[in-house]
């Protein structure tokens, strides 16, 4: 009985979690206006979020593909909200 309950909880949890949108797959479908808004939000968040732990590093330090990986790493490391991480990524890639 205990095992069945545990299995049920696991299946429900998996169903809920996989039904949400992913991390970066929506980036390609954004319009220019949405990207612009994301960039502006990223410009506002970048000096605040990054400086919370370390000196904020500017966009030209890495290539766009490197920023993709680094922001995935930082989203984990600092537990950044996905939308804010996407905004900062857009800003870093656009400010090169």
């Amino acid at each position: 009985m205990k095992t069945k309950a545990l299995m049920f909880i696991l299946v429900v949890a998996a169903g809920i979690t996989f039904s949400f949108t992913g991390w970066a797959q929506t980036a390609g479908a954004q319009s220019a206006a949405e990207k612009r808004a994301l960039f502006m939000r990223g410009a506002e968040l970048w000096p605040v979020y990054c400086n919370t732990c370390h000196n904020a590093r500017p966009g030209p330090e890495f290539s766009p593909s490197e920023w993709n990986m680094i922001m995935m790493h930082m989203r984990t490391q600092a537990n950044l909200p996905a939308q804010d991480a996407r905004a900062i990524l857009e800003y870093l890639k656009g400010s090169r």
Binding site: T17, S19, F20, W23, M72, T76, A82
Partner: peptide
């Protein structure tokens, strides 16, 4: 290995 399940949860 980090896997992003959705905007609010990831597995490490």
């Amino acid at each position: 290995l980090q896997y992003f399940l959705n905007d609010y949860m990831e597995v490490v």
